[in-house]
């Protein structure tokens, strides 16, 4: 069998794996994130006695879990050189639908399914436009962002919707596991993180995402159904935005047109800090999960220290810029051209 046995042995010896070197391990982005996370935890623990309290930490996860869930699929989109700027607007539309259904007196299961379905449809519409038009997704999703957000504003004006069954509100307001206290949104995030991690790093389609991100033309030549995968990713992005809407609406108990405003940038920040290259083809789910914790826990710590929200934003912005610049600076100092 010609394909399996080399007819002439290679002239070169090639190892199966890279030699294990401590320096290359430490310079991995995930290692840097672990160190950042350790610094955040140690710093906050020293600063505030309330930081390492299980209930406080559990409540802190509320503030980032919905975004983190949406960041998982955003990571895949950015990995394949796409982006979905309309996620927060999809969340708003889904939340609007949940609000109307609540007003109409439907039960919890109907509300949840409505949120997921509306999100999925919006995401599929994005995917349809991106794959059919050939226009870059950044342009398409800026458009649909205005469209979806506009729909919620037109339908609701300055009104709010707040009629929900108690069992629905409980999804966002009680612990899913009582001890250690774990909210449902955080539990779903951990579960999905595992699913996405295995999908991206262990399955054939996951591998194909790296190929599309690295070289879309070569990916097509290699028999990868590039457009089908793109469409699926945008659809899943909508689905998870719908899930975000289900959890967020239940948590705050009220639907206003400005729900989740500006979240797309927080989500993209998580992905970029997680080490997913905006140029495509590079990234890990582990990195994104670590970045979620670094951002979430530092926000929580700063809030405990009574730092105002606007200042927190400035500091997180600085953190992002420094963390992106640091490896480049290190390379400039140590490496040669």
């Amino acid at each position: 069998m010609m394909h399996d046995t080399p007819s002439t042995p290679s002239r070169y010896t090639v190892e199966d794996r890279a030699p294990r070197k401590l320096s290359s391990f430490l310079l991995r982005w995930e290692s840097i994130l672990v160190m950042m996370l350790a610094a955040v935890i140690i710093g906050n623990t020293l600063k505030s006695p309330y930081f390492l309290d299980p209930f406080n930490l559990a409540d802190a996860t509320y503030n980032f879990s919905e975004k983190a869930i949406m960041a998982l699929v955003m990571a895949l989109l950015i990995l394949v050189r796409e982006i979905d700027l309309s996620v927060a607007a999809i969340l708003a539309v889904s939340s609007l639908a949940i609000g109307f259904m609540g007003d109409a007196g439907y039960g919890t299961i109907a509300l949840v399914l409505t949120g997921l379905a509306v999100g999925t449809v919006c995401g599929a519409f994005n995917g349809f436009l991106v794959t059919r038009s050939g226009v870059p997704s950044i342009v398409i999703t800026i458009g649909t962002m205005s469209l979806y957000r506009g729909i919620t504003q037109v339908s609701l004006g300055d009104q709010a919707l707040s009629t929900f069954p108690q069992s629905y509100l409980d999804l966002g307001q009680t612990y899913f596991i009582d001890w250690p206290p774990v909210p449902l949104s955080f539990f779903i995030f951990l579960l999905l993180a595992c699913v996405f991690g295995v999908f991206l790093h262990k399955t054939a389609i996951g591998r194909q995402l790296f190929a599309i991100g690295a070289n879309p033309v070569a990916a097509r030549f290699s028999g990868i159904r590039v457009d089908r995968i793109r469409f699926a990713l945008f659809t899943v992005s909508g689905l998870l935005a719908g899930l975000g809407a289900v959890l967020l609406t239940a948590r705050i108990g009220v639907m206003r047109p400005n729900i989740g405003l500006g979240w797309e940038l927080d989500i993209i920040t998580m992905v970029i800090l997680g080490g997913v290259a905006i140029s495509g083809g590079v990234g890990t789910i582990g990195g994104v999960v670590l970045a979620v914790f670094v951002l979430g826990l530092s926000t929580f710590g700063l809030a405990l220290m009574n730092v105002p929200g606007i200042v927190i934003n400035v500091l997180l912005g600085l953190l992002l810029i420094i963390s992106i610049a640091a490896p480049i600076v290190i390379r400039m100092i140590t490496g040669k051209r």
């Binding site: 399996d4 290679s10 070169y12 090639v14 199966d16 794996r17 890279a18």
Partner: peptide, 15 residues
């Protein structure tokens, strides 16, 4: 190993 070797790819390791 089989195909890279057959084409005499010169590299340090397959990763």
């Amino acid at each position: 190993r089989a195909l890279g070797g057959r084409l005499s790819v010169k590299a340090a390791h397959w990763e």
